[in-house]
Simulated assay, not measured.
Amino acid sequence: MTSRVTFVSPAMSASMRQARFDDGGSIDTGGAARARAFAGSLPAAARVVVSPTVRCRETAAALGLDGAEAAELSALDVGRWRGLTLAEVGAGEPEAVARWLADPASAPHGGESVHDMCGRVTGWLTASQDTDGRTLAVVEPEVVRAAVVHVLGAPSAAFWRLDVPPLTATTISGRHGRWNLRLGHPLDSVEAAADH
């Protein structure tokens, strides 16, 4: 039995454009239009799951997907930094930001550490490895990063070295807990990539 998970990153939003920690805002008009243009281009899936953020739910809807929210695939909880830019936080708490970026187990914002988030996503992947067929998951970029870190067996510190553009797909496939990775293809090529 082979499991496949295609992670789709959300459409552009104002907070993403401003490099702002998610503030619960909606995807913007351009992002919604791009997502609607890809509706129907994703491969058929046995199940659809969605990060419980506004922009992921709206992206899934624009793509024509009706999925269940998966708490395990929630965005990284950045605590009191939510809604701020990294520059704003860095100006007010430079030592905390430096510690957070250097130590994956650190959570100076009062939220969740990168290490803990990677563990949460790993738990979801472990539970999903016995799901036959394809899962489509519309998730925050940091969820994709955490999944890639797990699949590659990379240290949590590699999390910050991965970029996940809006409306791209990253697919993993495997069986018996061994995953293979296909990175960041545009949504209009997911169907073709799924066949290879």
Rank of each mutant, 00 (worst) to 15 (best):
S15V: 03
P43D: 08
G67K: 05
D77I: 01
T59Q: 05
D28Q: 10
V50T: 06
R36T: 13
P43T: 12
P10T: 10
M12G: 12
S26C: 08
A46Q: 13
I27R: 00
A32S: 15
M12A: 14
R17L: 14
A60C: 11
E58V: 06
A68N: 12
A75I: 01
I27G: 02
R55C: 12
G40V: 06
I27K: 00
R55L: 09
R36D: 08
A70M: 13
L65D: 09
A32D: 12
A61C: 07
A45D: 11
A14Y: 07
A37G: 14
R55S: 11
T59G: 07
A39Y: 11
A11P: 09
S41A: 13
G30V: 11
A45P: 08
G24P: 00
A33V: 07
V49M: 05
S74M: 00
G25I: 03
S51T: 06
F38I: 03
T53Y: 01
A71Y: 11
T59I: 09
S41T: 15
Q18L: 14
A19H: 15
R34K: 12
L63R: 11
A44I: 08
A62I: 09
A71D: 15
A75G: 09
R55G: 04
G24F: 01
A45E: 04
F21M: 02
G67I: 02
S13N: 12
A33R: 14
S74L: 01
A45Q: 04
S13K: 07
G30Q: 08
A14S: 14
T59R: 03
R17T: 13
A33M: 09
A32E: 15
